[in-house]
């Protein structure tokens, strides 16, 4: 070969495309999932010791064996849940993940996409959330923040008495904690159902995947 310069690659080298889910999102997602399972099932055992409402959770669904084991599990997993949540929230704000992937959430967009979803005409595009997804994901993040804050109010009604007051007092903080849990469990059921309906969304949450080119 003579000294011919190799043809320069012209736009054939793909730009570095971001993953559908970044490594921090994937890591915090699965740590949160594991911690949440421990928190919810041990929380049900704690609830059963003094039920707020006229029912108990079936014993086989609860964790800890008895009240002391459940409390110990709850107050161990809470560190995992809370630190993981903090990492995710800081990352979400600093990296632009929230702004880019969860916002904006407009009533018109949610209304449009809800109707489309109910008619089974809503596209489930990888790497880009529709308005209903944005609402649900932002909602469950808010619920996890609420469950942590109300949990602190129940745990430390004297040291964190301002929080407990904000929750309407100790007994009311327990009720808030319960309904935040119920909302998270409700989200979880819908979330699992949708992953079963659209199974190709699961792999990217494990290995990352590759997001499609941003549409203009």
């Amino acid at each position: 070969m003579s000294g011919d310069a190799k043809p320069k690659p012209v736009a054939s080298e793909p730009r570095k495309r971001r993953a559908i889910h970044s490594s921090i999102v994937r890591l915090t997602h699965w740590i949160n999932a594991a911690a949440m399972v421990v928190m919810v099932t041990s929380g049900w055992q704690i609830y059963n010791a003094s039920p707020i409402f006229d029912f108990k959770f079936p014993a086989w669904m609860t964790l800890g064996g008895w009240l002391a084991g459940a409390i110990a599990s709850h107050f161990a997993a809470m560190w995992v849940l809370a630190i993981n949540l903090l990492v995710y929230l800081v990352y979400g704000v600093v990296s632009g993940h929230f702004r880019r992937d969860l916002l904006p959430i407009t009533p018109a967009g949610v209304w449009r996409d809800t109707r489309a979803a109910l008619a089974f005409r809503l596209p489930h595009a990888l790497g880009r959330y529709n308005a209903v997804q944005r609402l649900l994901y932002a909602g469950v993040i808010a619920l996890i923040v609420l469950v942590v804050v109300s949990g602190l109010a129940v745990w430390k009604p004297v040291q964190f008495q301002t929080l407990t007051w904000l929750m309407g007092g100790f007994d009311s903080a327990r009720v808030v904690h319960f309904f935040a849990m119920a909302g998270i469990v409700g989200f979880f059921l819908v979330h699992i159902l949708l992953v079963m309906i659209v199974p190709r969304t699961l792999a990217p949450m494990i290995v990352g995947g590759t997001a499609p080119e941003a549409t203009p």
């Binding site: 594991a34 421990v38 964790l63 800890g64």
Partner: peptide, 26 residues
């Protein structure tokens, strides 16, 4: 007053398994 119920073997195994999941993250 506390009436912790005795747990059967099957449930104990389930608890161990699911507890370990949490312990693993800790």
């Amino acid at each position: 007053d506390l009436k912790p119920e005795l747990v059967d073997l099957e449930r104990r195994l389930f608890l161990r398994g699911s507890l370990s999941l949490g312990a693993l993250t800790m």
